[in-house]
């Protein structure tokens, strides 16, 4: 009879082992995919730069990190702030913020529109939203270039209608980069906001009207708080890739309106300064982390407990 307990214990031990074995691939993937690259970056950022790119392993140096913020002039032996880098940081933050706000302003009504269609036509509207994803990002960005260039569709239309008499310089400006970013990342706002609106009980809207709330007040006091998780998710999904965007600022901003992605790429390419590139990457990561923490703290605090 004592054997029964023994068998049960052995069985449980075997089950526990099996669980770990089954979990292992997922854990390993998560570990490698999320921490692996970070570890590589961290190591690269504290090495001496190699002569033809890469790093000189074993030669520890903080030059990469110093170069993020300061530059040393060997002639007058002074150290000064790298204004160019800071300008790029600020431009990236500003553009990513404005992109997020613009995507919110355009994406929310779009998502609301889709969520209030009859159930059977909603999937068709969603399909329309995702269609741009079917085309390569590069191709779409070049298409925007075609629209905004001096002989592009927009300028030609404006000249033809007599609003202006010589082309406006739209390409290679922050405005062009912004337009490109909003266009590219808009679906990332629409989809999570739609998901949250779709789950919302629209009787709450009726209850709001019933309790003397006008349309605007229903939107402010009921709809927006109800879909806050979607708005937060959408903002994060737009802000993060926007701040590190590479293709859009490269093509639509020309050489001069760099964002952090371009600055980082420069270090790994022409600059042949991998430690600086790695340090800049980690700086970008830090900016994103800080921005997220601040954002989530500020949005989760208001409006009290939220049903999920």
């Amino acid at each position: 009879m004592a054997d029964a307990a023994e068998v049960a214990r052995r069985y449980q031990a075997a089950a526990a082992r099996r669980r770990w074995i089954l979990k292992a691939p997922a854990l390993l993937t998560i570990l490698l995919a999320s921490f692996g690259p970070l570890a590589v970056m961290l190591v690269y950022s504290v090495m001496e730069k190699g002569n033809y790119g890469g790093v000189a392993f074993g030669q520890f140096s903080l030059d990469g990190w110093t170069a993020v913020f300061f530059k040393y002039d060997p002639f007058d032996e002074t150290t000064s702030l790298v204004v160019a880098n800071l300008t790029v940081f600020l431009r990236s933050i500003k553009l990513a913020l404005v992109t997020t706000i613009a995507a919110l302003l355009v994406g929310f009504p779009t998502a609301y529109f889709i969520a209030t269609r009859p159930a059977e036509s909603r999937s068709q509207w969603l399909l329309l939203i995702t269609i741009p994803f079917w085309t390569n990002l590069l191709v779409r960005t070049f298409a925007i270039m075609g629209l905004l260039s001096n002989q592009g569709l927009v300028n030609n239309a404006l000249i033809w209608s007599g609003v202006i008499d010589k082309p406006l310089q739209m390409l290679f400006t922050d405005g062009a980069v912004l337009a490109g970013l909003v266009y590219v990342y808009l679906p990332l706002m629409v989809l999570p906001v739609y998901a949250s609106l779709e789950r919302m009980d629209f009787r709450l809207v009726e209850a709001g009207y019933d309790l003397y709330a006008t349309r605007w007040k229903v939107l402010r006091h009921i709809v927006i708080p109800s879909c806050k998780p979607g708005l937060i998710a959408g903002s994060i999904l737009v802000f993060i890739p926007a701040i590190g965007a590479y293709v859009t600022p490269r093509i639509l901003g020309g050489g001069k309106n760099m964002m952090m992605g371009n600055l980082i790429e420069l270090q790994f390419g022409q600059g042949r300064n991998w430690p600086l590139g790695a340090a800049l990457s980690i700086t970008l990561l830090a900016i994103v982390t800080v921005a997220l923490v601040v954002y989530i703290r500020n949005t989760a605090g208001k409006g009290g407990a939220h049903g999920h």
């Binding site: 009787r203 709450l204 209850a207 709001g208 708080p225 109800s226 409006g303 939220h306 049903g307």
Partner: peptide, 10 residues
């Protein structure tokens, strides 16, 4: 309302 429609965030 039938299912009360209480505002969940309040």
């Amino acid at each position: 309302f039938q299912n009360y429609a209480l505002f969940p965030h309040m």
